[in-house]
Simulated assay, not measured.
Amino acid sequence: MTVPRGLLDGPIYLDYNATTPIDPAVTESMLPYLTAEFGNPSSTHHYGRESRIALDHARDQVAALLGTSAERIVFTGSGSEADNLAIRGTVLASGVGRPHVITQPTEHPAVLQACEALRRWHNAEVTFLPVDSDGLVDPADLAAAITPHTVLASVMAANNETGALQPIDELARVSREYGVVFHTDAAQAIGKIPFDATELDLVTVVGHKIYAPKGIGALCIWPGVPLEPLVYGGGQEHGLRAGTENVALAAALGAAAELAATDLATGGHDRIRALRDRLHHLLATALPGRVHLNGPETARLPNTLNISIDGVAGHELLAATPQIAASTGSACHSGHHQPSPVLTAMGMDAGRGLGALRLSLGRWTTTEDVDLAAHHIVAATI
């Protein structure tokens, strides 16, 4: 497995939840459509046909990863765009005078801001379901929140900070029982765990979370779910996303999806889980009683370790360990650090929230990386 050039000489990369390096095989898949195969996929001549074939193949590859059919896949320019198409598109197509949307507070800002815009500009009512100390939504709370005006529920599949896995199948079942469209932002889940979109109404896919470039995503749409487009024009992408398709990026997403399917089938996620647990064990053993896991112990992504270490703030720890590229969930405003809204919603006190450190592993993480990272973190905290 070829290591991307960017990882060869830099710090140990443990920020795969923020973005993934482009897999060299994915880069290779793009090249023909940046050079010789430049045609517009809507053109009927030779050049257009070759681009159309590539676009259709990419759609097949993404659909296969999701366990669904290609006609459900609409390519977008990002995960944020896919979220907005799902949320705004559903609400505006509903025709309800004062539509009601349900979500929860640990969502990605693309979801939260889309809901806020609907409240501000379209008189929508927005309900935020509570989460427990692990950051999980109770399906019973969703059922209780649904009203005759509810048109959409949106709950992410996996949290980007803690890796918490929401009970998506149960939430979708509740929504279906009440005739409510269900959307899940699955940016962090797809490619990291087996994921089946067969019974889901709307699913957001993000390229740069699965080793494809930034600037490409997709929305998987259940047939018959009415959506108002964000971009009007020539009718591309089933009339839901106008603009000449970026064939090179679509091909990259397709190739990345196929690689992810192979990786899952051969147990790649189990390898990463073992490395994640090794890292946790090394830190907990070297710093007894000081390391606290944030989020569920088991119901989380296999690559994600979010911890707080007593006596040190996450941003200070990262500043003291330049040998590691990782992240915190805290926000810095004018030099003043604030705890992550995700951890705050989980009921975590400010001290532990400010201490949070997210270590997310990926395709090229090795045992040596984990051991060295643990060494540097321990050295900076004692």
Rank of each mutant, 00 (worst) to 15 (best):
I216R: 04
D185M: 07
I168D: 05
D169R: 15
G207P: 07
S175H: 11
A242T: 11
G233I: 06
L200N: 08
G217N: 07
V181G: 05
N159K: 07
G239L: 05
K192E: 13
A218W: 00
K192C: 15
L219T: 04
Y232G: 12
C220D: 04
Y211G: 06
H208S: 10
A242V: 11
P223T: 09
E161A: 13
G191A: 08
N246L: 02
S175A: 14
S175M: 15
I216H: 00
A248G: 13
G233H: 12
I193R: 11
A250V: 00
A158N: 01
V181A: 11
N246S: 03
D169M: 11
L227V: 09
K209G: 02
A242L: 08
K192H: 14
D169T: 15
A164E: 04
I168E: 06
R173M: 07
P167G: 04
L219K: 08
Y232I: 10
R241T: 01
H208R: 14
G224L: 00
F182P: 10
P167Q: 04
A172R: 05
A252L: 04
A186L: 09
H183N: 09
D185A: 11
A197R: 09
P229W: 01
G239I: 10
T198F: 14
L202W: 08
I168L: 11
E199H: 12
R241K: 03
I210L: 15
A187M: 13
P213T: 00
E177D: 13
D185R: 07
G243D: 04
V205Q: 01
A250I: 01
A251V: 07
N159V: 01
A242C: 12
K214L: 09
I221M: 02
N159E: 05
R173G: 07
V231N: 02
P229K: 03
P223M: 10
P194F: 05
A164H: 13
I216M: 02
E170G: 05
L171V: 12
G163H: 00
P226Y: 06
T162M: 01
N246M: 04
A250F: 02
G179L: 03
L230W: 00
V225P: 04
L253C: 03
V206S: 11
V231Y: 07
G215S: 08
P226Q: 02
K192S: 12
E228D: 13
A189M: 01
H238F: 06
D201H: 15
E245P: 14
N246E: 03
F195S: 10
F182A: 08
H183T: 07
D169N: 14
Y232S: 08
T162A: 04
V205T: 06
A218L: 00
I168Q: 05
H183S: 08
G163E: 02
D196A: 11
F182G: 08
Q166V: 08
F195K: 05
T184R: 03
A251D: 07
F182Q: 08
V206L: 12
